[in-house]
Design a protein around this nucleic acid. Structure first.
Length: 612
RNA sequence: GCUGGCGUAGCUCAGCCGGUAGAGCAAUUGAUUCGUAAUCAAUAGGUCGGGGGUUCGAGUCCCCCCGCCAGCUCCA
């Protein structure tokens, strides 16, 4: 399956209308390769289809529950939704009823008619319809608005739409959720129904299959099945890492450490808890207090760190630095705690205590570009090892920025030039930077085509200022260094979650919690199995012997389900020849090898961090 | 935090109109000694998320709390 990223500047049209829409980024699965134009046209058609399907859904809901107030029903990535306000609470069974009613509306083959009317006329119309939300929307709209009618249903809508309801064929309603009117927690909570629709039946099936596949790979499910981690009621958002999960962490950290060592980083560890005063100085008290945990020690207030930077600032300030010392690259696997809203917690993806693979680089203004390129290359190297594709986004100065324009200009330009120098394509998010500086985000794409923002490089003008960081330049004058924050994995816990879903639990051998399972054919060969295991263990391989009194087939099945890369079957033949019968979790029976031969092969695979 | 749904054995789930809990897998024990994805049998296992209430009687009904799941910018 190909995924073609493409941008859409036009919403598409039905007959007479050509309506612009905002710039958006799509990654869309297609079975066959198409030209960008064909792909764009297909996406536009799909969007129109989904928008029309949303209307049909609203119509169905109004038929089933007359008096329902309808809010908005836009197209979203891979589908659509519509928000409703009614007394009745939707249940999953209702979705089937609504789908059934939708099929009736489709069978009625109603023509979909666009009308342009004055805002005032629309107000009169929707007042008569008792559609308060539409009235509120109208307050912000132009003098002339468009409405769409199909049968008895009428909706305020800029369109475009299909011409007849019968053109909608392949759709599915997916879920019900609460959503605030206009996303504002202070306002009315509405009931939202999500659904999707496709032009082709196969595309709908493929989409639903992908969702099922994603559910099977859910790291929360695999995390339990593979015994990697757990989250218990006693610590919501505070994960327990089990022995097997710790292997992943430790391997990822060891690799990370080695790569940092090669690139001239030093490693530090700053305290989890620091005095309240520090957080006033850093600005976190003003901007981040709601998300922080506090504790009192000897009548003084201490905060548990939500970020590592203030600690790194103190570390830098411990001595006076010469321009000759820069750049200083200070890395820290920093455990941070953040009080995330209870409703947003999600497995290891969103937790309240996690480990950032942080680094702070202190440098001269002249070193900005080189350092940024260094990090960009670093990210590329690391993601390549895991087989992740990725794309890059550049975020520029926001409204509430601090620092003067010239510095912003210089910093943004440095980021831009670094990206150009590397020949990287990137998307620009105007005004999406942090208040203290512009940033580059890396969004990696997993095996199901989902994207995750992980690595980020952020230039920061605020911290060096607030902490009065200095270095002595060649004229013996005090100067302000430039600082950048960066992470590569992002958060170790989240990266493990992404990796689990990406690999469906089949971690590459260098990461696999158990690399080799030795399976004696029967009790008689347990001693030989142990001998083989001891040899591998001595060579540093993570190996276990399945000495249970079970049939071989069962042991193989369970080792397969645990996604153990290699199973070594040993029975009489192997014992007599000093060999092992090698079975790989994906490639199956690979035949017999001398123990030393197998050891060499697996060691090479581990050393090269091969993805297999 | 908010809305809705959910919480029964380690896991997945059943349990009607209220009448003091059940299956499969896992576990334990025994039999079996087996050649590339599940051997057979027996046994054990639960303050039904926690607390309060209604009732002769609550897993089941009501209230409060905790936790989990889906979602809460994607602007007619």
């Amino acid at each position: 399956m190909d995924r073609i990223p493409c941008r859409c500047d036009q919403f598409g049209w039905n007959r007479e209308n050509l309506v612009p829409c905002g710039l958006r980024f799509f990654i869309f699965p297609r079975k066959e390769r198409m030209t960008v134009e064909q792909n764009m046209a297909a996406i536009n058609q799909e969007e129109i289809l989904r928008h029309t399907t949303a209307h049909i859904m609203a119509q169905a809901v109004l038929r089933l529950w007359p008096g329902t107030k309808i809010a908005i029903g836009p197209v979203i990535k891979n589908g659509f939704y519509y928000d409703f306000d009614l007394e009745h609470r939707f249940t999953p069974e209702d979705l089937e009823k609504i789908e059934e009613e939708m099929r009736k509306i489709i069978a009625e083959d109603l023509p979909i008619v666009r009308e342009e009317i004055s805002n005032a006329a629309a107000v009169a119309l929707f007042k008569a319809e008792n559609q308060d939300y539409k009235l509120e929307l109208l307050e912000e709209l132009d003098e002339t608005v468009s409405i769409y009618r199909q049968g008895e249903f009428v909706d305020l809508c800029r369109g475009p739409h299909l011409e007849r309801t019968s053109q909608v064929k392949h759709f599915k309603l997916q879920s019900i959720a609460g959503a605030y009117w206009r996303g504002d927690a202070q306002r009315q909570m509405l009931q939202r129904i999500y659904g999707t629709a496709f032009l082709k039946k196969e595309d709908l099936k493929e989409h639903l299959r992908l969702l099922e596949e994603a559910a099977k790979r859910d790291h929360r499910v695999l995390g339990r099945q593979l015994d990697l981690f757990s989250i218990q009621d006693e610590g919501p958002g505070f994960p327990f890492f089990h022995p097997k999960g710790m292997v992943l962490r430790n391997e990822l950290e060891a690799y990370w450490r080695e790569e940092h060592r090669k690139r001239g980083y030093v490693e530090i560890k700053t305290p989890i808890m620091l005095h309240e005063e520090l957080w006033h100085r850093s600005g976190h008290w003003d901007n981040y207090k709601e998300n922080m945990y506090f504790s009192t020690i000897d009548e003084q207030t201490f905060a548990i760190k939500p970020m590592n930077c203030p600690g790194a600032m103190l570390m830098y300030k411990r001595k006076l630095h010469s321009y000759r010392d820069l750049p200083i690259r200070m890395a820290e696997m920093g455990l941070v705690h953040r009080h995330e809203l209870s409703g947003t917690l999600h497995g290891l993806m969103r937790i309240r205590a996690f480990t950032q693979d942080d680094a702070h680089i202190f440098m001269l203004p002249s070193q900005i570009q080189e350092e940024i390129i260094g990090v960009i290359d670093f990210v590329a190297d690391v993601y390549k090892v895991f087989g992740f594709k990725y794309h890059v986004e550049l975020s520029t100065k926001p409204e509430n920025a601090i620092g003067d324009d010239a510095v912003w200009e210089q910093a943004t330009e440095a980021l831009r030039q670094a990206l150009e120098a590397k020949g990287l394509d990137y998307v620009v998010n105007e005004g999406d930077g942090a208040f203290y500086g512009p940033k580059i985000d890396f969004h990696l794409e997993d095996s199901l085509g989902r994207t995750w923002q992980c690595a980020t490089i952020q230039l920061d003008f605020a911290m060096p200022e607030r902490f009065d960081l200095v270095y002595i330049d060649e004229n013996n004058e005090r100067k302000r260094p430039i600082m950048l924050h960066r992470v590569i994995y992002g958060a170790l816990e989240r990266f493990i979650a992404i990796l689990t879903e990406h690999t469906a639990g089949a971690f590459p051998t260098w990461l696999a919690p158990v690399q080799v399972q030795v399976i004696p054919v029967s009790d008689d060969y347990v001693a030989y199995a142990q001998e083989v295991a001891d040899r591998l263990f001595a060579a540093g391989i993570r190996v276990e012997v399945d000495r249970r009194d079970e049939k071989m087939g069962k042991k193989i099945r369970e080792a397969q389900l645990q996604q153990i890369p290699y199973m070594l079957i040993v029975g009489q033949r192997e014992q007599e020849s000093g060999r092992v019968a090698v079975r790989h979790r994906r490639r199956g029976d690979l035949g017999a090898l001398e123990v030393e031969e197998f050891l060499q092969q697996i060691q090479a695979e581990i050393a090269e961090k091969r993805n297999s």
